[in-house]
Amino acid sequence: MRPFAYHRPADPAEAVALVAADPAASFLGGGTNLVDHLKLGVTRPGTLVDVTGLGLDTVEQTDASLRIGTNVRNSDLAAHPALRAGWPAVSRALLAGASGQIRNQATTGGNLLQRTRCVYFQDVTTPCNKRESGSGCSAIGGYGRYNAVLGASGQCVATHPSDLAVALAALDAVVVVLGPDGERRIPATELHRLPEEHPEHDTTLRHGELITAVELPSSPLAARSTYQKARDRASYAFALVSAAVGLDLDEDGTVRDVRIAWGGVAHKPWRATRAEDALRGEQPTEDAVRAAVDIELTGANTDDQSAYKLPMVRATTTYAVHRLLEGSR
C-alpha cells in the first residue's frame, strides 16, 4: 500500500475541490471496497478524501420521491420504513448483498461505485485492461463463471457487482452528483457504462465528481417491486445473476407497466427495456415472461462457463414476477 495523505473535509465543495485538483486522489466512503483494493495494490492513490464527515446522511421523503444522502449506510437504508413500503426492491437488493457488518459500514455512493469482482482485476500479477489499460483481458479464456453475457467487449467481460445499482436502474432512480462545475443529475441507468474500448472507466463520472444523493421517484411500480438474486451460497455471495422487477397491473391483470433490470450479466446494471416493451399489455404468464426475457437476450454472448446465465436470468426474472403476482415483495 502506497503511503497516502488523509483528509476529512466537512463540506462537500471542499471534498470535490480536494479530489478534482489531484489526479492521484480518491474519495473514501465506508472503505469496504477501497481499502480492500489498497491492500491488493489494485489502486494506489496518493490522497484519500474521506467523505463520511460531510453530513449527507439523511433520508428525506416527499410526496413524489425519496432522497437518500450518499452517506446513508446500506443497513440503515434497507431498514428505512419508507423504503421498505415504497421501494421494496431496493431494500431487498441491499439485504441480498454482502453481510450485516459490511452493510453497516458501506455507504450508498460507495456501493454504487464499488468495482468489479473479476478475479483478474483483483490479482495484480495478471493482465487486466480495467486495472492497467492496454495490458489485456485475462478473463477472456480464463475463469468465466461471473463473466458478462451482454454488452461485453473484446477489451473487458467483467460484470458490475452492486445489487443496489440494479434495483435503482429498474426503478428510474436519479444519482445526484456534485462536481467542480456544480451539480448534475444522472439517471441511474446512465451512471455505469459498457466497457467498449475503455474498460478502465466504470462510470460516466468525471474525476472529482462526488455522489451526494440518490433520488427515487414514487410510483405504483416501485411499490410493487422485488429483487431476486441467484448465488453460489445461500448468503454472503455476489450474484450469479439477479433481477429487479416492478409491476403495475390493470384490473384485468394485464401489464400496465413494468420495469426489469438485471445484475450479473453486464458491465453495468442491465435495464431490459425490450423485455419491458414485450410485456406491456400482456398477461404476465410464465411463458410470456420467458418470451420477453428471450427477446432481450438476443445478441447475448456466452461460453461454456457463462452459458448457464441465460436460463438463470430467465429463471430469476420469472420467479420475481411470480412472487409479485403472489403478493410478496
Partner: peptide
C-alpha cells in the same frame, strides 16, 4: 463492524 476494511485514521 469489520475492522480489517476500516482505516484507523477514519
Amino acid at each position: 463492524h469489520l475492522t480489517c476494511l476500516a482505516l484507523a485514521v477514519a
